[in-house]
Amino acid sequence: MSLKATRDAYGEWLKDAGKINKDLVVIDADLSESTKTNVFAKEFPERFFDVGSAEQNLINLSSGLALGGKKVFASSFAIFETGRAWDQIRNIVAHDELNVILVATHAGLSCAADGASHQALEDIALMRVIPNMRVIVPCDAEETKNALDALLSLKGPAYMRLRREKEPIIDKKYKFQIGNAEILSDGSDIALIATGMMVSYSLLAADILKKKGVDASVINVHTIKPLDSQMLCRVAKNTGMLVTVEEHSIYGGLGSAVSEALSECYPVPIHKIGLKDTYGQSARSFEPLLKEYGLTPNQIAESSEKYIKKMKR
């Protein structure tokens, strides 16, 4: 499996898309080297604006530009963009359905060394509750570009959650479509419903489970909103039990979204793997931090197996 950071894909995509779409403008808040909007800035300095360290300004400026006919991509770290500027996003961008695409990087634990203040573990929740807001969490760099293509041709706002670190690129046979969940591997004992980088980890966990005689499906939920409830219901009927896996709080994120949907159509036991009502912390590298919070493939497999045993007792 080759490795690439989703934020690098974003930078490359911006540069290509900027050539074709002259209305595309990019705004950043003093983090352009980290978010990779600097790639666009170098190519199209006249369509790139840096507001400095000012996230509320970032969003309101974007709204104004969108009202003025621009297709805006606004970037910062996920924690600051969705946190500090939540009101501006909720009350203007989403309410007025403006053409502002929020592409935030360094989400989840990927901002490992900086610690709790920089690790966005609530951003999916924050964006998911806002009416009109789409929430996209690509599983890898390739899907990041596909999702950006799709968003470029749509009207209205969206939130895209990207990460800092290099991540595996997954073999995919489907054509990306906003709103679809995708089955990556089919098993009937349990389904691992994952988002973002946890998709590739869940595939590895499924391999581990297979060796233990557990047949697991793996589902990629790249669109948390609108959620593909129909397909999730079908999966639930098939396996009778689900595990959700996310690099995010289990409150308000993927696990919550899936639970909300299934409780309406086909309630089954759902085991939620993710951050359990806690802040993150510093670690010198990413992997140990994932381990600290139970998010390695081995831990995902182990925890799923335990849950199956517990529920079958």
Binding site: G115, A116, S117, H118, Q281, S282, A283, R284, E292
Partner: peptide, 13 residues
């Protein structure tokens, strides 16, 4: 500094 479990987090805690 910045080691997992340390009292010296990346930012003041």
């Amino acid at each position: 500094l910045r080691k997992i479990g340390t009292i010296l987090q990346g930012h003041p805690d």
